[in-house]
Write a protein that binds this DNA or RNA. Structure first.
Lengths: 222, 222
DNA sequence: ATAATAGTGTCTGTAAGACATTATCAA
DNA sequence: TTGATAATGTCTTACAGACACTATTAT
């Protein structure tokens, strides 16, 4: 005789705030752990979700009012002891979004917290976030992934800060620029510069349209 | 009202046969698709499996009589249309094993098939295997992963063939050996060589014991 | 002018691949 | 000896990081 298994989706939504990698938490409105901050999540709805990606998009939309520019499956966390309701499966998704979009979403109950300053979270959400941070660290080494954190337009110094926040270490400026050039996903926005103080203004770039929905990989890492 | 969701495990068990990357298929003993070859899989048993890894080990043991030296989660495939029984979640694991162990397991109903010669399989198992091949391709570039396909002892030319089968491309011998040296997971077995014909015999190596249960990563890939 | 950061040129050490040479076996 | 593969030495080229220099702004 089979006892029933709870099927849920959780999303690790990452963003950059003050040059730091942060995770977006949502205050839970139901038990268990009502009123505590946790990863945005919810049940899979077999009647309306065609697959788990569908479910992740729906849940993210409900909890954060956002459609992030990047969303992929992270991993599944499943077992008897991770949820007080019983044996549960959580298919976890991993999303990136520019901080400004979160602010402008005006969704109540959201908290943005640096990933290295998290307190104890409900369920196994700390472990899940660790896994997500490992993933972004890894992919940032050889792909255009962090560009999805940067918003529509950005300067190269800004993008380097984002890569550094993702990787958790400083990068060589010359090498970084060579690699971005090699990646070939950026396009200079002609004539547009950003003057951020008493110094030479920086050229503004955007993602080439063909890479807005497609990661580009490097042969050798950064 | 929630309709129930089927929770299963499938395992992509990969091995090397005749210098080719192969997947181990198991003849299904139940409907749907009874008597067809498919990935070894089964229901999660909430009463006896503590988590999904437990379930994968149990199912693999039942279907193949094997405990592979390497087992990790691959990805979850979930949706309404992948299984005729209804909305299903399959948490898929990815395992590596030396071919000799499969032979010696004597388990009936197993087929070993090159991954590039697969016919149409039940469910979304073709897509799942593709994902697994992508994974091994990727990890083989910068880790000791393929060593788990090599058995207890092996020569460097043999290991290079295995890496090449995983990567789907030839490798430079000198670079390969430098990288294996840099990885530092191998130990020469003193005095032991393998004479495979009318030529100089090759030195035999094994995995250092501290790496038998731990992947080692390269800073830069092969 | 000065300070501050953006952006680029150039040098150097390292690492990867290509090639060649030596080693060791069977026939 | 010959042929085959193992194993290693060495050369060349490419690339990553370091450093320095130029560019352009605000004050």
């Amino acid at each position: 005789m089979m006892q029933s298994i709870i099927a849920t989706i959780d999303v690790v939504l990452l963003t950059i705030q003050d040059d730091r990698l942060c995770v977006v938490l949502s205050k839970r409105d139901k038990e268990p752990y009502a009123n505590l901050d946790a990863l945005p999540g919810g049940y899979i709805h077999a009647e309306e979700d065609r697959d788990s990606l569908d479910a992740a998009v729906r849940i993210l939309q409900q909890k954060t009012s956002l459609i992030p520019p990047y969303l992929e499956q992270l991993r599944t966390f499943a077992g008897a002891s991770r949820d007080p309701r019983g044996w549960s499966i959580s298919v976890v998704y991993f999303a990136l979004v520019n901080n400004d979009l979160i602010i402008s979403s005006q969704q109540p109950g959201l908290t943005i917290c640096p990933v290295d300053e998290l307190r104890r979270l409900p369920f196994d959400h700390n472990e899940i976030i660790e896994t997500a941070v490992d993933r972004i660290r890894n992919k940032s080494q050889y792909s255009s992934l962090p560009c999805y954190l940067a918003g529509e337009t950005f300067t190269l110094p800004r993008l380097q800060k984002i890569y550094e926040a993702c990787l958790g270490e400083g990068l060589n400026k010359v090498s970084f620029r060579r690699k971005m050039d090699e990646l070939g996903v950026l396009e200079e926005i002609p004539g547009q510069t950003e003057s951020g103080g008493a110094h030479r203004p920086a050229q503004v770039y955007g993602l080439k349209s063909e890479f807005k929905n497609q990661l580009k990989l490097l042969e050798r890492g950064l």
